[in-house]
Nucleic acid binder design. Structure first.
Lengths: 127, 127
DNA sequence: ACACTACATTCATAATTATGAATATAGGTG
DNA sequence: CACCTATATTCATAATTATGAATGTAGTGT
């Protein structure tokens, strides 16, 4: 496989809007699948498929913590690739933001972000 | 079409080894189709197809000069995209070089580069 | 061991892309 | 206008990708 094929394979792995969104989510560091599911509002199986493609391309890795699998980018250099696109296209995506209020993502990060009491802890309900 | 789709469309236009090679050829400025044909050793119709894809993606433009059509990149920013790839892949393609000695590309640039006498001009043949 | 949770995989098919072969066209020249 | 050259387009099909539906599996708690 010559250099151009290798580069084009990388580009193919990147050239999908869902995968671009996933990578943007991973800019802030590792995130679990359920987080992406809630953020992108897409089916879990679908996201998993896209994650597999990124994994096979050698762009992401996983870490298990209990039930949750956390994905992270292992080639931060791809962000330089992504960041070079707006100069060509003239558009810049604003990273998808998980609306914690509506989502019911059970992963630790989201529970905290949502400012919900942790299990077993109770705050006084006013109303 | 949202920003991610636009970006992924650009990436799709780039994610093909022949098109990457064509763009590298165009780094030095405009080139005619016959030049690419000789350089890449690919059929004319095939190259023309790839050029159409680059054109539809808004990356290249043409200029006619007599019989020859010269293609040039109109978004030099794409070179920044291409240049960001080696850091991820670890490989760097060396731009395809047209071997003037073997090729018989009739375009002006190539004739000159080959150091051949122009039409009608004769140098003394030794032998 | 059982049930549940978080995630992965397989299967099927629709959609798109890749690419060769053949043919068309536009511009130039005599 | 007839013909040549450089390039484009159309057609057909193989190959790949996209994506939903269904199902499988590993880890966790009881």
């Amino acid at each position: 496989m010559d250099a151009y094929e290798i580069q084009s394979n990388l580009l193919k792995a990147l050239s999908h809007s869902t995968r671009l969104a996933i990578l943007d989510i991973l800019r802030d560091g590792e995130q679990c699948v359920c987080h992406m599911e809630a953020t992108l509002d897409l089916r879990q199986a679908y996201i998993s498929q896209q994650l597999m493609i990124l994994k096979q391309a050698g762009l992401v890795e996983t870490r298990r913590d209990g039930l949750n699998l956390y994905y992270r980018v292992i080639k931060p250099e791809i962000f330089a690739v992504l960041d070079s696109l707006p100069a060509v296209t003239g558009v810049r995506a604003k990273p998808p933001r998980h609306k914690h209020a509506n989502a019911n993502c059970p992963c630790p990060k989201c529970s905290v972000a949502r400012n919900l009491p942790l299990e077993g802890v109770r705050v006084n309900n006013q109303g």
